[in-house]
Amino acid sequence: MAGDGIWPWLFIAPLVAGISVFYFWPVLQTAFYSLTDWGVFGGWTFAGFANYVTLFADPALYLSLGNTLLYTAIVLLGIPIAVYLASLLNLPGLRFAGLYRVLFFLPYVAMPTAVAMVWRVIFNGDFGLLNHALAIVGIDGPYWISTPGAATVAVAIVGLWSSLGFSMIVLAAGLKNIPPEMYEAAELDGATRWRQFRSITVPLLTPSIFFVTIITVISSFQLFDLLYAILGSSNPVLPKSMSLVYFFYREGFVNNDKGYAAAIAMVIFLIIGIVTAIQFRLQKRWVQGD
């Protein structure tokens, strides 16, 4: 297949050079150190696959993987919601569209540590708003942030809340690429709005939906700050609610077992890589025009 000669290389060179130095190189170093017993302040001895052998026998790996998957699944529920909301916002002639956009975007701008404080108040088991609201409809809410499982759900609710704004602006940009003439034609054919949503909006938006899905999965697998901020560092359910990256952080920066942490990082890398590769495979089935 004939290429475009030197041009593509000129286009990608600055980015690829920067990424290589500042990102590939650290990843390669990490890959190397995952095979060593790496001292806290540097220095190492070769350890072969010892870190990986220990890791695959460590229940914490499977526990944190399970928590991460649960979290990711809940945050992914935000994507259909975002698609629906973005299409509503795109309705021609909709008044206050700008205001709505700002409202949905607010959580994405808010500073995580400040917002975590607010959410802790909302989730508080004895005095929280959420449990007050649930009590009204006769549900006895759990101690959200101090019950294993419920804690993951609580963090995921915040994750969904804060990522919705991002998904919506990406999808809004995608919607601008759909020619209004298509809706007009459908209108002429007497298609209902729901029908238009299903047969025009969603199919033509699939590249953006695909993009948002990939990014959401990747960033959900990176769950760390939010978990830490909402549960708090001395929370007794933290060991049962930890995410993969929290597991990595705990081993590398708290327990100072850096070689082991490097191995965890490589496993996280592998897991996300596989999940992403599967998504790219599957996209051929549902993404249009790619």
Binding site: S20, V21, F24, W25, L28, G39, F41, G42, G43
Partner: peptide, 17 residues
């Protein structure tokens, strides 16, 4: 392997002793 000789100049730090 990835053509990164440049990166070697400043970075293999770390004092283990």
């Amino acid at each position: 392997a990835v053509g990164l000789a440049l990166a070697l100049s400043g970075c293999s730090g770390g004092s283990g002793g």
